Amino acid sequence: MAAPRVLFVNHTSAIAGAELILLDVVRAWRGATAFLFEDGPLEGAMRGRGLAVVKSRFGRGLSVVKRDASLWRAAPLAGRLAGLTAEIVGAARRHDVIYANSQKAFVLAALAAAVTRRPLVWHLHDIVDGSHFGTGQRRLQVGLANRFAARVIVPSAPAAEAFVAAGGRENLVEVVPNGVDVTRDPRSRENLRRDLGLPDGALIGVFSRLAPWKGQHVAIEALAAEPLAAEPTATLVIAGDALFGEQDYAAELRAQADRLGVADRVRFLGHRADVPLLMQAVDVMVHPSVAPEPFGRTLVEAMASRVPVIATAAGAAPDILDHGACGTLVPPGDPAALAVALRTALARPANLTDQLDRAEARARAQYGVAAMQAAVAAVIARVAIAR
């Protein structure tokens, strides 16, 4: 059987975590087609992976429909959404499988799948619960998945459990852990810091887009807490930007650092394409999300880079960190507990080497890109054959 013709659909052309996973997935599908709702960096990256790119005429501006907002916010866009769906229908007719890589892409791709009778794979990169999505959006997503999805790929058991708890059919779910490819830079940490323009002293890194649920404000509050008074030269490095309309939160983070008297100890680096290098230059990596994460790419990158990890005990983090054997878990939204954990990690405890050995081995054995590519390709092949 010839390889199925796959239409990869994504709603944004900004490159965040879900798009990084998509860029790894499509490496195995040169010659496939990417349907993007808007212009942006993802277009060039997709072309660089050997995909043809189709851009919608109607897709811009959908960021006004937040995932935790009422569906009524989408009502003024009804005409454009209809035009966008018609475009996906036209593209889908020339392909064997539709692959939706985001929640907004999935909703419209499900309607296109219903019209074209093409099998639909939804790569769900979210925890479908009330902390992330409004009630109407959850019901819509799960209802469309139960009716029109051939498979729902999720990156972790917690993401699968949340989908089923929201009413999703368990037999639709395929757990495929995200793959992360980390090649360690041969430069010393000191040379990396010099080349990257980072300060001396203890460095604490937070690497994710700026959004309230990502918890950068908790890390800033922890930096100002009493346990870190013994580390007056410790600097918090925040790499990431407000990609999806969270500019007010980004401004509040700067105001918070100033209000707490630590503005000179917080470096905002903005969006960076060299996160793996930055990761290797810090002394400890913090994953401070206040809501459950479906995965945690930066956790695996830090583990593979032999950087100590502190993460909140929610979502997939406990599984990735082997319930604390490969890092330190703290309660979500608890800056005091985070400050204590940071102070301990920066003191380089005696058991740290064993923890880093275990973390690196786990990252490379369980979260490789090749394994993810093979598993996703197998799902696509099965649904194509079933059709």
Rank of each mutant, 00 (worst) to 15 (best):
A3I: 06
A3K: 13
A3C: 08
A3D: 05
P4Y: 02
R5L: 02
V6Q: 01
V6C: 06
V6L: 08
L7E: 01
L7W: 05
L7Y: 07
F8Q: 05
F8G: 04
V9I: 15
V9S: 11
N10Y: 09
N10V: 13
H11T: 07
T12L: 12
S13D: 15
S13M: 03
A14T: 14
I15M: 08
A16H: 15
G17L: 14
A18Q: 15
E19Q: 12
E19H: 06
L20H: 08
L22N: 02
L22E: 03
L22K: 00
D24C: 14
D24P: 15
V25N: 11
V26G: 14
R27M: 08
R27I: 02
A28Q: 02
W29T: 01
W29F: 12
R30G: 09
R30F: 12
R30N: 09
G31P: 04
G31I: 12
G31D: 01
T33E: 04
T33C: 05
T33G: 05
T33Y: 02
A34Q: 00
A34G: 08
F35S: 08
F35E: 12
L36Y: 02
F37G: 05
E38I: 07
G40A: 14
P41N: 11
P41H: 09
E43H: 00
E43A: 04
G44M: 04
A45L: 04
M46I: 11
R47V: 14
R49T: 06
R49L: 07
G50N: 11
L51I: 05
V53H: 12
V53N: 08
V54H: 04
K55G: 09
R57F: 05
F58R: 00
F58E: 07
F58Q: 03
G59H: 11
R60E: 15
R60N: 13
G61A: 08
G61C: 10
